[in-house]
């Protein structure tokens, strides 16, 4: 439990201990608990209003948003294989300006900070978005999501643009297979915290099911699938409990070497899983698509962590 409480701090204005996710930032990002949803799984703050008590969370991470509106991907968007899911939505969103018009009041009412997940486009676009978000009440930070193919230079420039043009802490979500490459670099070059990691990319065949499945899932549609011979494939983000050992492997190698707080994300399915991540040095955890199956999971994990964390701090 050596590093368990590294980022827990007592804020003079709060009676409860807070976790500081951006200790290097001028304003910081103090959150009241270590559990938050992962980007792309929780909507924009109000989707789970009837299911999840937000006051138990540390923060709410939004679905990815871009400056310009994006439409949903065509064709099949989800495939189940064993205990894992492959999801490809195309990150549909109404664009940042329209989104802010729609959700500003919701975010103001939330009892925890909102971390807006930005689809990192060009540095200029990211700078524009960061400046816009700096004016929004309730937003506590920005999480930048990168393409797996992003160059080191573009990643650094994008983080710098977000940090320079806005006054919000910047969290970089590192692509799964770029941790060794990007995590130390971005931690040195301006990111206030890192999310390890974005869901890995995966490909699954989707024409193997029976005809009723094929029909229900609209397998004939073009767009997200690639046809090779008679088989079709869905490329997308991989979710599932199977990711958790991979996450622990990454955390065990990196969490204590990086000079910024790390947020663990990938297959966390219980308070014990979350505790393991915190023990390995993560400052907080994100619950990903498992919440779709079990909406109360995020509150269960938060309650499960509450007592040990409080005892550790005191």
């Amino acid at each position: 439990m050596g590093r368990f409480s590294t980022y827990w701090t007592f804020c003079p204005c709060e009676s409860e201990p807070m976790i500081e996710l951006a200790p290097r930032h001028k304003y910081g990002l103090a959150i009241p608990g270590p559990v938050m949803p992962a980007a792309g799984t929780f909507g924009y703050g109000d989707a789970y209003a009837d299911w999840v008590d937000p006051s138990l969370l540390g923060a709410i991470v939004t679905n990815p948003v871009s400056m310009r509106p994006r439409r949903a991907a065509h064709g099949q968007r989800i495939a189940v294989r064993g205990d894992t899911l492959v999801v490809h939505t195309g990150w549909p969103n109404p664009g940042l300006r329209r989104l802010l018009r729609e959700v500003r009041e919701t975010w103001e009412r939330l009892p925890v900070p909102v971390i807006v997940h930005l689809l990192a486009g060009s540095p200029a676009e990211t700078a524009q978005a960061a400046a816009l978000l700096s004016t929004v009440t309730g937003v506590g930070g920005i999480e930048l999501g990168f393409m797996a193919s992003v160059s080191r230079r573009q990643a650094v420039e994008t983080v710098a643009a977000a940090a320079t043009e806005g006054d919000l802490p910047v969290i970089a979500q590192i692509p799964f297979d770029r941790v060794d490459d990007l995590a130390p670099l971005l931690a040195r070059q301006g990111a206030d915290a890192l999310t390890l990691t974005a869901p890995p990319r995966a490909v699954v065949p989707i024409a193997m099911g029976d005809s009723s499945t094929a029909e229900a899932w609209n397998l004939e549609a073009e767009g997200t699938t690639d046809e090779v011979g008679v088989a079709r494939y869905l490329r997308g983000r991989l979710y599932g409990r199977a990711l958790f050992p991979l996450l622990l492997n990454i955390l065990s190698r990196w969490a204590q070497k990086l000079p910024v707080p790390v947020i663990a994300c990938g297959g966390i399915a219980s308070a014990e899983d979350a505790m393991a991540c915190l023990t390995l040095g993560a400052a907080a955890v994100q619950i990903d698509a498992l919440i779709w199956h079990e909406p109360s999971l995020i509150n269960v994990v938060a309650r499960g962590l509450e007592k040990p964390a409080q005892e550790e701090v005191r």
Binding site: F42, V87, P92, A216, W292
Partner: peptide
């Protein structure tokens, strides 16, 4: 269509 979350969070069913 598949509706994994049922609450409008996942964008799979758009």
């Amino acid at each position: 269509v598949p509706m994994p979350c049922g609450v409008g969070a996942c964008d799979v069913c758009r």
